[in-house]
Design a protein around this nucleic acid. Structure first.
Lengths: 344, 344
DNA sequence: GTGAAAGCGCTAACAC
DNA sequence: GTGTTAGCGCTTTCAC
């Protein structure tokens, strides 16, 4: 049995299974696809043959006929970043449970790589795409996304295209954090976050401005830094501000940048919260275990990943309805001990 | 041009390109595959047609004939864990540059999911597999790995199979850290790390024991905890030990578990390093920015990922030679301020 | 240097 | 219920 198989150095195919079980190709196919119109004894014979040969259907051949690859592409700027990693992780779990395979690629914040990755997704004929792009105004990337004809869910981004999106309420996040600091009496607050070419940065800036407006405090343009996503950027910015005159008395920063901010604060031997108040966007072990524990704005990155996957699934299955979904997770200010009134 | 394309609601195929460029299928194929035996003007005509139609070759159809999918499967216990995330991230970059696509799946430390994922990889006919398994003695998983016939690189694991492996010198890691504590005068040192069903845990335990042996100090079995990978486990274990009698005066823990250990230390209001000395396996922002900064054993997770990908590439290309590679990254003890002599 | 044709492993439409 | 057959989009002989 399976004699010619050994010689051909190839994996077993439906043909081998059919021969061994003494049925036709069609019947094997029906068994594979759980078509009910197969007699029970025949089905069992086929299944036995499949096991005996360790047969597994070839995904490429299947998708070639069925026009569905059961795969989704996932593109993020950097999978090494814990925020993206947890989101992707949850999305992958949900998709995997639904039978989908995830193809993952990091763009490293490069527009060229984004285009490359998206064309790869097209070549692979993925059934859906989950993506967080580096810049929301990247015409070329948006155009590819628009014309791909593939189900698409934007994660934590909004752009000028007809796609679902799942994200976080960064506006409220900055609004709450800033208002809290303003209430404490701060009037020189610095904001360090990602570029305003993505929603995350833009909304944080808007929330920041709105809070100032609400409190009737003029915000200082020079104390907004929206040009970098790295800890290094957080360090440089905080350091410069803090050694300058008219230094801020409080700092808001993304979780990533906050690691750098903390280093700068240490380097300058400043005390938190006596000399400087700190709030992080995004909760981390670092924030929770810092001395003192950092006040943060928290949301569920897991929830975002899970929701994004669920939305994509319903879109791929065509059960999502006409209207685009635009889901925003709420955020919560967790007051710990990194904020105090500014020194008089 | 491409008139019938619009109507057929399908992506353009080689056939459309051939028709538009007035050549045969074979010629289009040769252009796609950079076969030099195509006249320059013809090649250019074909390329123009491809652009005009936004043609991209179908990966499934290609791999069906060529028997190479240009994809690699990557299986890790948890992509949400920063240690795995950075490794995977680097590997993905290297593989992507070489033209390979990465299929990613987290097993969540479940043997069943591992089997499922591996069979998925087989169905997808991946050209190579990069994996970190949950237990090195999992007969079923090992058997699948052995019989897959797919190029395989084990990451930070060794098992009874004929595969390349890339990892870290966890033995030396524990040896150095433990010896350092012993030298400071500690004699009740606790070790909290992953299970000894994987190399990481086993080698750390061995290094721990070896250091005790070298110093002529008896190590205490009860102060070794190798049953959990979570911060929660670190917390529970540390808490119990520290409130008990004959509490350890120093603790070694994996980066993951260390977050929990720190919480336990805080909860009990213990001072580091006066009341308890701490060393983490693996450097993190948390360790570096802790008060006081933690002494750690450091290695390059990026390096491991990069190397694993490079080894896999050479294996897939058949340029790796007969002998199995077994690459071990060195580690380095970074002394900061979390260790002191035990109280008399 | 280029075209024609066979077939990779599978599904689905159609016979019986 | 089951078998037969025609492709899915591509690569690769083999002619010319």
């Amino acid at each position: 049995m399976g004699g010619d198989l050994d010689r051909s150095m190839r994996r077993p195919t439906m043909r081998h299974v059919a021969r061994l079980a003494n049925v036709s190709l069609g019947t094997v196919s029906r068994v594979i696809n759980n078509n009910p119109s197969v007699r029970r004894d025949v089905r069992e014979r086929v299944q036995k043959a499949m096991e005996e040969l360790c047969y597994l259907p070839d995904a490429a051949a299947q998708s070639m006929r069925s026009l569905a690859t059961m795969s989704v592409g996932c593109m993020v700027p950097d999978i090494g970043n814990p925020l993206f990693a947890t989101t992707v992780s949850m999305a992958e779990q949900v998709l995997h449970s639904a039978g989908y395979t995830m193809i993952l690629s990091s763009s490293q914040y490069s527009s060229e790589r984004e285009r490359e990755i998206l064309s790869l997704f097209r070549r692979r004929r993925v059934d859906g795409i989950l993506c967080t792009i580096g810049r929301e105004d990247d015409a070329e990337v948006l155009s590819i996304l628009r014309n791909s004809g593939i189900a698409l869910v934007m994660v934590d981004r909004t752009a000028d295209l007809d796609a679902d999106s799942v994200g976080t309420d960064h506006f409220d996040s900055a609004l709450q954090a800033t208002s809290y600091l303003l209430t404490l009496g701060h009037s020189r607050i610095g904001l360090i976050t990602v570029t305003d070419q993505v929603r995350t940065g833009r909304e944080r800036l808007q929330g920041f401005m709105q809070a100032h407006h609400n409190a009737g405090v003029a915000f200082e343009q020079r104390l907004t830094a929206l040009r970098g996503f790295s800890a290094e950027y957080g360090y440089r910015t905080a350091y410069e501000w803090l050694i300058g005159s008219e230094a801020p008395t409080a700092l808001l920063a993304g979780a990533n940048q906050m690691a750098g901010v903390l280093k700068a604060v240490r380097a300058l031997n400043l005390k938190v919260p006596e000399d400087i108040s700190l709030i992080s966007f995004g909760d981390t072990d670092l924030a929770e275990l810092n001395t003192p524990p950092l006040t943060v704005v928290r949301w569920s990155t897991e929830g975002v990943g899970r929701t994004a996957a669920v939305v994509l699934l319903s879109r791929m299955r065509g059960t999502a309805g006409e209207a685009r979904l635009n889901l925003i997770s709420p955020v919560e200010l967790i007051v710990r001990r990194s904020c105090a009134q500014p020194k008089p």
